[in-house]
Structures are given as C-alpha cells and as structure tokens.
Simulated scan of single mutants.
Amino acid sequence: MEPAPITSIELLLDADAEAAVRAEWDALAAAGLSSMAPHTSPSNRPHVTLLARRGGVPHPLALPDDALPVPLVLGAPLLFGDGDRRVLVRSVVPSAALLALQAAVRDAAGAGDDVDHMAPGTWTPHVTLARRLRLADLERALPLVGGELACEGVALRRWDAGTRTVTAL
C-alpha cells in the first residue's frame, strides 16, 4: 500500500524577509548552483514548516488569536542529508515564541502520523534555499547566503502534497 501523502502547516515570512530569501535563491541560481528559484509554482514560497504528517490535518485549526505575528531570526546556513548532495537551509533560531507556536499548531492538529523529524525535541526550524546542492559547490554557495536577519512569521498555510494545493489558514 502506498503511504498517505504529506500534509504540512507552514509559517510564511514577512514581505521583506521573503524578498531577502528569494534574493538568495536567485543568487544561487545565477551562480549555476542548486536553488529553489527555478521552482516557479505559486506554492513555492519561503516558509518554516511547523508540522508535517502523513494524511490530513484538521481544518480549520483552532489557534490562539495572538499566535501571529511571531518574531523570527533567520540565522546561519545548515546542511541536511548525507552523500555528495545536501539540502542547504537558513537556520531559524528556535525562540520561545516559535516553539510555542509550533506546540499550538501540534495541539490544534491533534494526534496523527507525524513525520519523524517534526517531533518535539527533533524539529530543526529552517527555510530551504536549495535541494541537492553538491558538496563540491558549498564553497561557492555559502558567500551567497546572507547574515542574521530579524523578521516575523506573519501567516500560516496548509500544503497538501496529495492534491498539490495550498490553503491559507
């Protein structure tokens, strides 16, 4: 039997931070490196995934009225994965406010078949810059990633991988 498609709840960045991340995507692409820039689908936006699970997530989610905006700090680049290709991301500092938002989203979604790396204590908040970046290209890629950036998470959306649709929450 095929596994259930992933549904995720994603935190969108304020306009200035989104523009800064998109500029990093563009710089990587202009240098001939792996980047999220070529993915031109309207669903491809800089975001922080708060919850990812196999199967559905209830809609609507009952979250506190004051859940957003949440202050964020985009930090140093990180690499995920193994082998000669990695996922290049901007770290997001796991502040008390961000951890509280993630907990509120998890509580509102209830129990489910969460993706392993989303469990409390294992989640690493981040914004993806490139997938499948060659380790050999890392020296060229890192100077194209900006320094620390204070910003806000301003909206939530649901991504349904099964239907490839985005719904504002």
Results as ranks from 00 to 15, higher is better:
D14A: 08
S43Q: 11
S34G: 12
D26R: 00
L63W: 00
P46M: 03
S34V: 03
I9K: 07
S34H: 08
H47C: 00
A37G: 10
P42W: 01
I6Y: 02
A52F: 15
D14V: 10
L68S: 10
V70H: 11
A19N: 08
H47P: 01
A27R: 14
L13E: 08
A15Y: 06
P38M: 00
E24L: 11
P46H: 02
G32Y: 08
V21Q: 01
M36T: 08
M36L: 13
S35G: 04
L63M: 02
E24H: 15
E24Q: 14
I6T: 15
I6Q: 06
A30K: 13
R45F: 07
A29D: 14
A37S: 14
L33M: 07
T49N: 06
A30Q: 12
G56P: 10
P60N: 02
V48S: 00
A27Y: 14
R53L: 15
E10P: 07
L61F: 05
D66W: 08
H39M: 10
A20C: 04
A30S: 15
L68N: 09
S34L: 04
G32H: 09
P69C: 13
T40I: 05
A23E: 08
S8T: 08
P58A: 09
L68Y: 12
P71H: 12
P46N: 01
A20V: 01
E10L: 06
H39F: 13
A31W: 12
R53Y: 10
D16N: 07
H47G: 02
L50T: 01
L63V: 06
L51S: 05
I9T: 10
S43I: 05
L63R: 03
S8Q: 02
V57W: 01
P71A: 14
A52E: 14
G56V: 08
L13V: 06
I9M: 10
A19P: 09
A19M: 10
